[in-house]
């Protein structure tokens, strides 16, 4: 949502426009004016419109292979005023010259001379023009050839680059997916601590998998053997000592789950939030007399169960992770 720093009744439109333009600049990095964008587009176009700008040595090679264009020798003639009367015989030339007025009396040879003279010049001119055109066409063909060649090269290069980028995107995507699953797995590992109300702690870093039949006893004895560790307030954000020590989640007995539910219900309905919070602070003392809240009271009363609850409990969602045991980042503990 657009937000403006101007906060008074005296609006300054120019100031607001400055802010809007600044935000646009921030969004797209560089503030190109329309003219600059047009210039940039023109530069790109120019390169392709002028094939000389993207020349490689291919054209030279091409020219070496192809012979230079030689215009064909087209038949032509010279036609001047005296051409009609020319002869290598001197007397004949004299007689023709003598009788020329008589010839002109019978018809007008000048028109014929003029027409043929013009035709001769036109022939020459067209031949030259044709030669020039052909040369230009060939040069254009060569340039077109080179341009298309370069375009093909560039397209190929772009194709390879696109393929590389696709692979990178796939790689980044799979890493992202892995990280997401890892994050989900970490979030889903919840530990209920005894006497700490509903405080949730992340999973232990190394959840081992000891045989379930023998797991409960050592854990219980361990937690009872180290009451000071279980009662430390910092445990709300740290894995339980038993977890750290390599303890496994205790398999529940047949009535344990329902008992725990009843206890939780009792805690929730049992007192104000302040009391619960107080209980949270007091409960880790292992049923110390200062605990005043209902939660603390429950925890004190049911200290033996609290020991069980202090063990990490892996939720079924953990199995969704599919990456094996989730490793807890020490920084997050």
């Amino acid at each position: 949502m657009p937000d403006f720093n101007v906060r008074s009744d005296s609006v300054n439109v120019e100031q607001i426009m400055e802010q809007i333009r600044a935000r646009i600049r921030e969004k797209r990095g560089v503030d190109y004016t329309e003219q600059q964008i047009r210039d940039l587009a023109a530069v790109k176009l120019e390169k392709f419109l002028d094939p000389k700008g993207v020349r490689s040595d291919l054209l030279e090679q091409f020219r070496k292979v192809q012979p230079a264009y030689e215009p064909p020798e087209l038949p032509n003639y010279e036609f001047e005023e005296s051409t009609l009367y020319e002869t290598h015989r001197g007397p004949l030339r004299f007689i023709r010259k003598l009788l020329n007025p008589l010839l002109k009396l019978l018809f007008n040879p000048n028109k014929l001379i003029q027409a043929l003279h013009i035709q001769s010049k036109l022939n020459t001119m067209f031949a030259e023009r044709e030669a020039r055109r052909e040369a230009a066409r060939r040069a254009t063909d060569q340039l077109t050839y080179e341009l298309i060649h370069n375009l093909v090269v560039e397209t190929t290069r772009l194709g390879i680059e696109v393929k590389n980028l696709k692979m990178r995107v796939e790689s980044v995507g799979s890493r992202l997916e892995f990280n997401e699953r890892r994050a989900r797995a970490l979030e889903s590992v919840v530990v209920y601590k005894s006497g700490e109300g509903d405080v949730v702690a992340p999973a232990p870093s190394r959840p081992p998998a000891p045989p379930p039949a023998v797991a409960p006893r050592p854990q219980q004895s361990q937690s009872l053997a180290h009451p000071s560790q279980t009662s430390q307030p910092s445990q709300t954000s740290q894995p339980s000592p038993s977890g750290v020590g390599g303890g496994s989640p205790s398999p529940e007995g047949p009535g344990q789950r329902s008992r725990r539910r009843r206890r939780r219900r009792g805690r929730r309905g049992g007192g104000p939030a302040a009391g619960i919070m107080g209980g949270q602070g007091a409960a880790p003392q292992g049923g110390a007399p200062e605990s005043s809240g209902p939660g603390g009271q429950h925890a004190a009363d049911e200290g033996h169960d609290a020991a069980d609850e202090s063990q990490p409990v892996t939720r079924p969602a953990d199995a969704d992770a599919g990456q094996g045991p989730a490793k807890t980042d020490p920084d997050t503990q």
Binding site: M1, P2, F4, R7, V11, I16, I20, R23, I24
Partner: peptide
């Protein structure tokens, strides 16, 4: 941007 600013910023 300007249309959005007028639309979304009642004060403005």
């Amino acid at each position: 941007e300007t249309l959005g600013a007028i639309e979304q910023n009642r004060w403005l």
